[in-house]
Design a binder for these strands. Structure first.
Lengths: 236, 236
DNA sequence: CTCTGTGAAGTCATTCACAGCG
DNA sequence: CGCTGTGAATGACTTCACAGAG
């Protein structure tokens, strides 16, 4: 257990490990070694051990890790033991799709509000979960009233920075940005970007230059991946 | 100009540079130095030069790069000069939202088909673009008929691997996966993952452990980011 | 004897810093 | 001069390999 600062690659992988453990727990498996887990989910066992060791000594030598126990530890580490409330700015196609997304629930996130500036959308309740669409001008108030601590941006790129500024002024410290825009955040505010354009264009590159050996198990970078999910009911 | 193999981080950044250049071109700017571009879009100038130098000597010493010229080069490099046709498997919330996504167009991608297994969806045309929903069992045929070369997976995690296998059997070499699952691809097939769960849980970590200096400009990893987009009409 | 936790080594990516072209 | 292209330096991340705990 060191007290170095933790890289984002590590926290991304912790999320992956959590999924793996959920899968194992669902299969009734009580204990797992880093090697077994690495093989099953194609990860690297040393990396698993190292990532975990940043936060404590959770394993038992000669045995491995207790699945439930490690799962609980990772939930704590990632702060998933406390409920998070999400606001989505931009009630377009993607925004409303996200408002219906069940995957949030599993990680202790609830979509509490949508925001838009289109008169005809404001005041409506949308989707299965009947989330209310608020006027984006009331963002700060609703964030406060609804105790929202995470904002998802699904707005056009040209307004993304302006909206982010408003979001930061409302005291939000965590933002998931879907707008294809390089945003400037003030320090203390974490912005994670999910950029479809970059993903697609990079795929296009791989089509343009077929490599003999396109790697099968890419590094778990950029916030992603897994082999099987415990929550199988989710539908995107 | 070397002939090393190019890292995915580099191709992701090329996509970002392309956006920047589009912005500059739209502003009527003819020529730009790596330093100016780095400052405007908060990138590192040495990295821009190095990334570009993998593919050729596009710059002019003492001047910089010609915006239009460099733009065209990157389009070629990324293979965006040839049209791509996209099939989306999973006509749920996210799948249909993506079918309506205008951002595809800018990068020379067209959504040619949706696939699902739900009887009531098959045969329908959905969204603004009236994309036809096909029976997923006919995937190979439709991929061939519609000349689809990129598949987007927006299916539940438990079926993602099975669907991917089918997709690979149909000869697809490029896949964008939204399912929270660690997929195994055969070599020569490129799978890019976009995992909302990982992104959110990693955000949760940053809320749980507020750093004094949460970094403002994270490395452009994991397929993302930008400051201003030339195509401002897109609505998610 | 198994498997963790971890220094040390190895690999890959970013940034520096400058020779030399225009 | 200014700015590119690039080796060399630095830094970050991953993997190896093993001492030692259980």
């Amino acid at each position: 257990m060191k007290s170095e600062k933790i890289s984002e690659l590590t926290t991304n992988r912790l999320s992956v490990y959590l999924r793996c453990l959920n899968t194992l727990a669902a299969a009734g498996i009580k204990t797992v070694s880093s090697k077994a887990m690495a093989e099953q989910f194609n990860l690297n066992s040393a990396q698993i051990r190292k990532d975990l060791a940043y936060f404590g000594e959770f394993g038992v030598r000669g045995v491995g890790y207790y699945v439930e126990n490690l799962r609980d530890h990772i939930i704590k580490i990632l702060g998933l033991d406390v409920a998070h409330r999400v606001g989505i700015v931009g009630a377009g196609n993607l925004g409303t799709a996200l408002a219906n997304y069940d995957g949030f629930t599993t990680s202790n996130f609830t979509v509490a509000a949508l925001f838009d500036n289109a008169r005809e959308k404001i005041g409506e309740r949308v989707g299965r979960n009947q989330v209310m669409v608020h006027d984006v001008r009331n963002l700060a108030r609703v964030v406060h009233d609804e105790e929202i601590d995470v904002i998802v941006l699904s707005v056009p790129a040209r307004v993304a920075q302006k909206v982010l500024n408003q979001v930061m002024s409302a005291g939000i410290k965590a933002v998931l940005n879907f707008a294809p825009a390089r945003l400037q955040a003030r320090r203390g505010v974490k912005v994670k970007n999910v950029d479809l354009t970059v993903a697609l264009e990079s795929l296009s590159y791989s089509l343009a230059r077929p490599q003999v050996s396109t790697i099968t198990n890419p590094r778990v970078t950029h916030a992603y991946e897994e082999i099987a999910q415990h929550d199988e009911t989710r539908e995107l």
